[in-house]
């Protein structure tokens, strides 16, 4: 991944570090980032040495301020856009990663930024975080899973308010509504994410992967099928 431009990826002691790295553009998500993210996610998924991954943003001002709109007006026809969306399904890949993913969020976490965070399993935020979905004010809706992942995280009413008003949520409110798991001072952000990662790594990896699978897949099943899935996974570990 030596020729990467907008993402950096490193591996240290079983943790994969993915850094969105366009700080001059508040790490805005563009086509290049989509392609690099697709490669990185594929690499993580196939790499048994990576036990857990941490996602963060470079620079002081933002984790990711959303999609790069300068690329939007050159969009192809809806039919071609649809083909492209599923030909390189970065969001489906994101949600299919077996290892736990932790988002370390600071500054602006908007649009595609919050959608990346919602594809992760655990979200840690610094006190300066501002989260929101401005899409409806631009005549669009989120397209990286936000309309599905947000209500599954914070409930329908809170998700609808964020999406229909575009209002930004601060750290305190995000914690109260369950949008983030923890809020810490800015300098504590990465150490806190790493503490969680280290705790996860201290457990047998097969159990970690099975636990994530039981919870994530179970949420899409009725209770009976979810319990059967749990029992099957538990037998695998026995």
């Amino acid at each position: 991944m030596a020729d990467f431009e907008v993402i950096t990826y490193e591996k240290k002691d079983g943790t994969g570090y993915v850094t969105l790295d366009r700080p001059h553009a508040l790490n805005a998500y563009n086509i290049r980032m989509r392609d690099e993210l697709y490669q990185v996610l594929g690499a993580i998924k196939d790499d048994s040495e990576v036990k857990v991954a941490i996602f963060r943003g470079a620079g002081e001002r933002a984790f990711c301020a959303g999609a790069d709109l300068t690329e939007f007006l050159t969009a192809p026809s809806p039919a071609i856009a649809r083909q492209v969306r599923w030909a390189r399904d970065v969001w489906g890949l994101f949600l299919s990663i077996p290892q736990p993913l932790i988002a370390a969020l600071h500054g602006y976490v908007l649009g595609s930024g919050i959608e990346i965070a919602l594809c992760c399993d655990i979200r840690v935020a610094s006190e300066d975080v501002r989260l929101g979905l401005p899409e409806t004010g631009l005549g669009i809706i989120p397209a990286a899973g936000g309309t599905q992942t947000l209500p599954r995280t914070v409930g329908r009413a809170a998700a609808l308010e964020m999406l229909l008003t575009g209002r930004l949520v601060d750290a305190k409110e995000a914690l109260r509504m369950g949008l983030v798991n923890h809020v810490v001072p800015r300098q504590e952000l990465l150490p806190n994410a790493e503490r969680i990662a280290n705790k996860i790594k201290s457990h047998p990896q097969a159990a970690v992967v099975c636990a994530k699978q039981a919870v994530v897949r179970g949420l899409d099943l009725d209770l009976e099928a979810g319990l059967a899935l749990e029992a099957r996974l538990a037998r695998l570990l026995a």
């Binding site: 809806p78 856009a81 649809r82 969306r85 599923w86 005549g139 669009i140 809706i141 989120p142 397209a143 899973g145 936000g146 309309t147 599905q148």
Partner: peptide, 8 residues
Amino acid sequence: EADLYLLL
């Protein structure tokens, strides 16, 4: 979501 997005 993707279909509604693309319709827009």
